[in-house]
Protein backbone atom coordinates (compact mmCIF):
# COMPACT_ATOMS: atom_id res chain seq x y z
CA UNK A 1 0.00 0.00 0.00
CA UNK A 2 1.22 3.49 -0.71
CA UNK A 3 -0.40 5.43 2.12
CA UNK A 4 1.73 6.04 5.17
CA UNK A 5 -0.10 4.70 8.22
CA UNK A 6 -0.52 7.29 10.91
CA UNK A 7 -2.49 7.93 14.07
CA UNK A 8 -6.20 8.50 13.54
CA UNK A 9 -6.62 12.11 12.39
CA UNK A 10 -9.39 14.26 13.84
CA UNK A 11 -12.52 14.19 11.69
CA UNK A 12 -14.81 17.07 10.86
CA UNK A 13 -18.44 16.33 11.77
CA UNK A 14 -19.78 18.59 9.01
CA UNK A 15 -17.72 16.84 6.35
CA UNK A 16 -18.78 13.50 7.78
CA UNK A 17 -22.43 14.47 7.52
CA UNK A 18 -21.98 15.36 3.86
CA UNK A 19 -19.87 12.42 2.75
CA UNK A 20 -21.27 9.74 5.09
CA UNK A 21 -17.90 8.09 4.63
CA UNK A 22 -14.83 7.53 6.80
CA UNK A 23 -11.44 6.32 5.59
CA UNK A 24 -8.68 5.72 8.10
CA UNK A 25 -5.16 4.54 7.42
CA UNK A 26 -3.70 3.60 10.76
CA UNK A 27 -1.06 1.41 12.31
CA UNK A 28 -1.84 -1.74 14.24
CA UNK A 29 -0.99 0.01 17.51
CA UNK A 30 -3.75 -0.68 20.09
CA UNK A 31 -3.53 3.01 20.97
CA UNK A 32 -5.45 3.60 17.74
CA UNK A 33 -8.36 1.37 18.73
CA UNK A 34 -10.26 4.01 20.65
CA UNK A 35 -9.93 6.84 18.10
CA UNK A 36 -10.84 4.50 15.21
CA UNK A 37 -13.88 3.24 17.10
CA UNK A 38 -14.97 6.78 17.88
CA UNK A 39 -14.71 7.72 14.19
CA UNK A 40 -16.89 4.80 13.13
CA UNK A 41 -19.37 5.56 15.92
CA UNK A 42 -19.57 9.14 14.67
CA UNK A 43 -20.36 7.80 11.20
CA UNK A 44 -23.08 5.56 12.65
CA UNK A 45 -24.66 8.54 14.40
CA UNK A 46 -24.60 10.57 11.19
CA UNK A 47 -26.22 7.65 9.40
CA UNK A 48 -29.10 7.50 11.88
CA UNK A 49 -28.13 4.54 14.04
CA UNK A 50 -29.46 4.72 17.58
CA UNK A 51 -27.07 4.83 20.52
CA UNK A 52 -27.19 1.13 21.32
CA UNK A 53 -26.67 0.08 17.71
CA UNK A 54 -23.85 2.60 17.39
CA UNK A 55 -22.17 1.09 20.42
CA UNK A 56 -22.52 -2.40 19.00
CA UNK A 57 -20.93 -1.40 15.69
CA UNK A 58 -18.13 0.36 17.57
CA UNK A 59 -17.50 -2.80 19.57
CA UNK A 60 -17.38 -4.90 16.41
CA UNK A 61 -14.82 -2.59 14.80
CA UNK A 62 -12.75 -2.61 18.00
CA UNK A 63 -12.76 -6.41 18.10
CA UNK A 64 -11.96 -6.74 14.39
CA UNK A 65 -9.00 -4.36 14.67
CA UNK A 66 -7.73 -6.07 17.82
CA UNK A 67 -7.87 -9.41 16.00
CA UNK A 68 -5.79 -7.94 13.17
CA UNK A 69 -3.11 -6.78 15.61
CA UNK A 70 -3.06 -9.99 17.61
CA UNK A 71 -3.43 -12.58 14.86
CA UNK A 72 -2.76 -11.13 11.39
CA UNK A 73 0.24 -9.16 12.60
CA UNK A 74 1.26 -11.38 15.52
CA UNK A 75 1.19 -8.48 17.96
CA UNK A 76 3.25 -6.05 15.85
CA UNK A 77 2.04 -2.51 16.43
CA UNK A 78 3.56 -0.73 13.43
CA UNK A 79 1.76 -2.46 10.58
CA UNK A 80 -0.81 -0.87 8.26
CA UNK A 81 -4.57 -1.18 8.51
CA UNK A 82 -7.07 0.57 6.26
CA UNK A 83 -10.62 1.08 7.50
CA UNK A 84 -13.39 2.37 5.27
CA UNK A 85 -16.88 2.97 6.59
CA UNK A 86 -19.75 4.27 4.50
CA UNK A 87 -23.52 4.31 4.46
CA UNK A 88 -24.78 5.60 1.13
CA UNK A 89 -28.29 4.38 1.94
CA UNK A 90 -29.91 2.39 4.72
CA UNK A 91 -26.97 0.03 5.13
CA UNK A 92 -23.64 0.61 6.83
CA UNK A 93 -20.68 -1.07 5.16
CA UNK A 94 -17.29 -1.35 6.83
CA UNK A 95 -14.17 -2.81 5.29
CA UNK A 96 -10.97 -3.55 7.17
CA UNK A 97 -7.91 -4.37 5.08
CA UNK A 98 -4.70 -5.72 6.51
CA UNK A 99 -1.43 -6.86 4.98
CA UNK A 100 -0.78 -9.58 7.51
CA UNK A 101 -0.69 -13.35 7.57
CA UNK A 102 -3.82 -13.69 5.45
CA UNK A 103 -5.01 -16.61 7.53
CA UNK A 104 -8.73 -16.94 8.00
CA UNK A 105 -9.87 -16.37 11.56
CA UNK A 106 -10.60 -19.30 13.77
CA UNK A 107 -13.96 -20.81 12.86
CA UNK A 108 -16.38 -20.75 15.73
CA UNK A 109 -16.99 -24.24 17.09
CA UNK A 110 -20.43 -25.79 17.01
CA UNK A 111 -20.36 -26.27 20.77
CA UNK A 112 -21.77 -23.46 22.87
CA UNK A 113 -19.31 -20.77 23.87
CA UNK A 114 -17.81 -21.42 27.32
CA UNK A 115 -17.71 -17.97 28.91
CA UNK A 116 -14.86 -18.96 31.23
CA UNK A 117 -12.55 -19.93 28.41
CA UNK A 118 -10.57 -17.02 27.00
CA UNK A 119 -10.81 -15.97 23.38
CA UNK A 120 -13.54 -16.05 20.81
CA UNK A 121 -15.65 -13.20 22.14
CA UNK A 122 -14.47 -10.90 19.40
CA UNK A 123 -15.60 -13.26 16.67
CA UNK A 124 -18.91 -13.80 18.43
CA UNK A 125 -19.43 -10.05 18.36
CA UNK A 126 -18.68 -9.94 14.63
CA UNK A 127 -21.12 -12.71 13.85
CA UNK A 128 -23.92 -11.66 16.19
CA UNK A 129 -23.89 -7.91 15.82
CA UNK A 130 -23.53 -7.54 12.05
CA UNK A 131 -25.88 -8.72 9.30
CA UNK A 132 -23.02 -9.94 7.14
CA UNK A 133 -19.36 -10.65 7.89
CA UNK A 134 -17.15 -11.79 5.01
CA UNK A 135 -13.45 -12.59 5.21
CA UNK A 136 -11.86 -12.43 1.75
CA UNK A 137 -8.23 -13.59 1.63
CA UNK A 138 -5.99 -11.37 -0.50
CA UNK A 139 -2.66 -12.17 -2.11
CA UNK A 140 -0.99 -10.12 0.59
CA UNK A 141 -3.36 -10.13 3.53
CA UNK A 142 -7.06 -10.10 4.35
CA UNK A 143 -10.12 -8.02 3.53
CA UNK A 144 -12.94 -8.09 6.05
CA UNK A 145 -16.27 -6.73 4.87
CA UNK A 146 -19.13 -6.18 7.29
CA UNK A 147 -22.63 -4.90 6.72
CA UNK A 148 -25.40 -3.85 9.04
CA UNK A 149 -28.76 -2.36 8.17
CA UNK A 150 -29.82 0.69 10.11
CA UNK A 151 -33.17 -0.93 10.83
CA UNK A 152 -31.63 -4.07 12.33
CA UNK A 153 -32.68 -4.46 15.96
CA UNK A 154 -29.90 -4.11 18.48
CA UNK A 155 -29.07 -7.22 20.52
CA UNK A 156 -31.13 -6.06 23.48
CA UNK A 157 -34.26 -5.66 21.39
CA UNK A 158 -33.53 -8.79 19.39
CA UNK A 159 -33.34 -10.79 22.62
CA UNK A 160 -36.59 -9.31 23.82
Amino acid sequence: MSDTPSPVPPFDPQTLAQTRRVELNITSDPANLGPARHAIEALCTVCGFDDKSTGEVGLVVNEALANVTRHAYGGAIDQPIRIIGQCPDDELQITIRDWGSGESPIVLPDAPHDPLKPGGIGLICLRQLMDQTIFTPQDDGMLLTMMRKRTRPSMERANG
Partner: peptide, 16 residues
Protein backbone atom coordinates in the same frame (compact mmCIF):
# COMPACT_ATOMS: atom_id res chain seq x y z
CA UNK B 1 -23.15 1.34 32.14
CA UNK B 2 -25.32 0.10 29.24
CA UNK B 3 -22.54 -0.75 26.80
CA UNK B 4 -20.60 -2.71 29.40
CA UNK B 5 -23.74 -4.56 30.43
CA UNK B 6 -24.43 -5.36 26.78
CA UNK B 7 -20.98 -6.85 26.26
CA UNK B 8 -21.32 -9.05 29.34
CA UNK B 9 -24.62 -10.33 27.96
CA UNK B 10 -23.13 -11.08 24.55
CA UNK B 11 -20.22 -12.91 26.21
CA UNK B 12 -22.72 -14.74 28.47
CA UNK B 13 -20.81 -13.57 31.50
CA UNK B 14 -23.67 -11.73 33.14
CA UNK B 15 -24.40 -14.87 35.16
CA UNK B 16 -20.76 -15.69 35.93
Amino acid sequence: QPRVKGLLEIARLDSI
